[in-house]
Amino acid sequence: MIDTAKNTKWIKACSTSDVPESSGACVLLEGEQIAIFNFTTTGKWYATQNLCPHKMQMALSRGMIGDLNSEPKVACPFHKKNFSLNTGECLSGDDYQIKTYEVKVENDLVYVLV
């Protein structure tokens, strides 16, 4: 499947059971480290870059997820910088921006639009 307009395509990342419940995991897709997040209670999935721009650490997939005023977010495990999983915006008052990716789940498989 290729979205020709944006030159992106859906790539199979992993199976749903590879991502622990209410938590994240990291996949390597086309040489990029991507963090995938599984909100078990709402059934929603998100994906972002794995790199935390604060101290350049490959760590976001190991962060705790949750929400801030209903905005889904991840907190970096190193210094707890919060990032929106919808927009990639840093919610801790810093000027960081992370990449977000679209995610879909089909037949217990997780796909990311890269």
Binding site: S22, F39, T41, T42, G63, M64, I65, G66, D67, L68, S70, P72, K73, A75, K80, N82
Partner: peptide, 9 residues
């Protein structure tokens, strides 16, 4: 809500 890094741990 979904919790956060304060209440979860």
């Amino acid at each position: 809500g979904s919790g956060c890094e304060v209440c979860k741990p």
